[in-house]
Structures are given as structure tokens and as C-alpha cells.
Amino acid sequence: MTHSTANRTRGPVTGSPTTGNGHDPKLEIRGVTKNFVTRAGEVDALASCDLALEQGEFLTIVGPSGCGKSTLMMVAAGLDEASSGSILVDGEPAGGPGPQRSVVFQRFALFPSRTVADNICFGMQQARVPKPEQAERLEEQLTLMGLGKFRDSYPHELSGGMQQRVAIARSLVLRPEILLMDEPFGALDAQTRLLLQEELVRLRQVHRFTVLFITHSVEEAVYLADRVAVMTRRPGAIKTVIDVPGDAEWRSSDIETAMGHPEFTQLRQRVWKLVKEEIVAS
């Protein structure tokens, strides 16, 4: 398959969504809506949202602040109930939260009373993974994320970037099929953020998990994704899904180089224009 018409924009998705190349979706968000009851009455957070991710796909969602990105993520994770619609994993209703859909939160969500090693092992202990295997998988993650020195540190002793590495390791150690990342780098400084973005690209080459990634950074969305979904302002819906060509030159380069690439710039500007339309309109 050639990508001569590289950045093909899909219109607003209607009906049953399909994945990038028409395979059976790994994770499917089907007609999800969400409204909250408050004293002021009902508030619509999400209009109908449809998305489908194929096995191993990396899909980022960008949208104006307050558009319901995080709400959608919580519903996808099973942490919140949708008002209507459903979440399907391999075509089956997904049910409650669980280790097969691991979540990485913006605010790290590390257990402050547990050491790095304890935090990473928490999920394995829940799943009653045998002790020797736990130790082995812990070592593997510590090495992979460069956390070896910090295994006995408590979260508050670590920098933000290190804390988020621990959180990612805590998710990855469970060998999740799906990784849900809710602005995982949003609370980090710009330099740490760049490093972790590259690290994430590297990790994906090791484990081919399926990723749904929320961000408010257009660069990040474009750099990391196979496809970028743009959300409308509140009540949020999927406005457009944009393909990022898999064979684009800049994809194999680091993020600074990529950002200098004209094709990348063009794509970024397109996504930004779509997001800005929503910000300005609200």
C-alpha cells in the first residue's frame, strides 16, 4: 500500500467505525455518550463518540480543554460508566477496569506509601503472579525504564519524570494488551517530556500494545500517533480522524528532527487548525 495521498482526512465518523485498515478492532468505542447530574441539572460531557483501534495501533486524541477527553478515557478504562454506548475489547463488552486495559494517569497516581518496586509489583500481587516471576518481571521493567537505582525509593523522593516512568513500568509489567494514557506527560517539564516521548516510541517497538493516548499537545499527538483523532468542544465528539503516514521520513527520527521536517509541520498545522476552530467557536 502506498501513501501517495498521504494525509487523508476522514470526515466526521458516522455509523460503525472501522480501523485504519479495516481489520477487526482491538478496542472499540461505540456510540459512547456521557452526562452528569448536578444541582444545576444534567450536563452533557460527551456527545456520541465512535472510535476503533486495531491491534497494535497508536491513536492519539487532541481537543480543546474541557472537551471531555479525559471523561472518554475514564469510560474507555471502565472507571466511569457511559450514559449510553459501549466499550468493546476484541468485540466483547469490556466490563470493569482491569489489567488488560492499563491506565497511565497525568498525575502519576503512584501509591505514596509504597516503594518503587512495591508500586510496580502491586498489579502482579493482585493477579497472584508467582513470586519468582514477579521478581523477574520487576527486574525487566526496572532495567527497561532505567529505574534500577530507585527500586527502594518512595515516590515523593523522585522527580516527576521518574515518577511517571514508575507509573508506566507499573502498567507495562502487567503486559497489558491495551494501554490507556491520559495526558501522561502533561505534568512534566518540556525536556523530560521530550525524553519520555522518545522512550515511548522505543517501548512500542518492544511491546506492540495498542495505545489510546490523550494529549493537548498537537506536536505530541502527531509525533506519536498512527492516527490522530480531533475532538469537538463540549459536549465532546470525534470531529475528524487523520492518518499519519506510517512511512513518513520523520517517523524514524527523534522528535527535534521530526519537528523540523516540512511534512511534519504541514500535518501539525492541519491538526492545530482543526483544534483551533473548536477553541475559537466556544
Binding site: 489489567p99 498525575r107 497516581a109
Partner: peptide, 14 residues
């Protein structure tokens, strides 16, 4: 206790 920790624990299978 930060509700986020409870949510995190839930997604880790607790």
C-alpha cells in the same frame, strides 16, 4: 486519600 489512587488500583486489578 486521593481518589486517583483508588482508580489506579482498580485498573491494576484490585
Amino acid at each position: 486519600v486521593d481518589p486517583l489512587l483508588i482508580r489506579a488500583a482498580r485498573t491494576l486489578g484490585a
